[in-house]
Design a binder for these strands. Sequence first.
DNA 1: ACCTCATATGTTCATTTGTTCATATGTTAT
DNA 2: ATAACATATGAACAAATGAACATATGAGGT
Lengths: 119, 119
Amino acid sequence: MKEKAPVCKVTLFDEETVQTIRANLPGEETIIELSEVYKSLGDGTRLKILLALKEKESCVCDLAAALSMSQSAISHQLRVLRNVRLVKYRREGKMVYYSLDDEHILKIIQEGLNHIEHK
Amino acid sequence: MKEKAPVCKVTLFDEETVQTIRANLPGEETIIELSEVYKSLGDGTRLKILLALKEKESCVCDLAAALSMSQSAISHQLRVLRNVRLVKYRREGKMVYYSLDDEHILKIIQEGLNHIEHK
DNA sequence: ACCTCATATGTTCATTTGTTCATATGTTAT
DNA sequence: ATAACATATGAACAAATGAACATATGAGGT
């Protein structure tokens, strides 16, 4: 007989664990915001854009050329990235130059790369 | 007249920028893998599971209880997380205990939180 | 004022994704 | 072997997403 038999049975779980988990979960709003950030990162085109901007601030047409995609497609994806503040931009005449919004983005991507290169 | 007029015109972009971007982009395979990791993070339920596991290794039924969701739903999401090696598990009798796969996951989530708390 | 270029947005449509229900594994105890 | 339980999986469907088209906006030059 164990002192702490692991029982579950739908309603019989480890109360303490459950309470701890619940107490430490951020609010629903935070969860949604966070998931939207990762969702935006979860697309090949957008990742390429961010990896490109990691090197150097660029205008939309350079991004389109570098990724061999239409300007419209790039612009759509940039809007998604703007909405979650992954990129910021600055206007100079007709051109709009995009860059990464903050250092967190870089770290998130770097740790992601570390993960898949399995350390 | 500027010394470096920003011209674009579909085929007229900054060659150097374009070359630099292309030269530094990871291969397509890496991009796909990376996007799948973030895609997996881009869901509220899966984020909650990871935030829960951040605290303490847990079995499926505790996760289901803590998040007030069906065992089936949790199990399905755990499979997604397993597929991209965001979680690992260990069997103990009937129970299966899940935990975060490595430290990178924690950092990715932490930087994500830092980002949305805009600091 | 006009025209052109760079970028942004709306709409439609095909595909992907998440959830639920029902069922299947796999483990322990009798 | 059978029962009971924890977890996993398959099918079906609604909802979210992405690509591609046309069109709109905003800036500079004429």
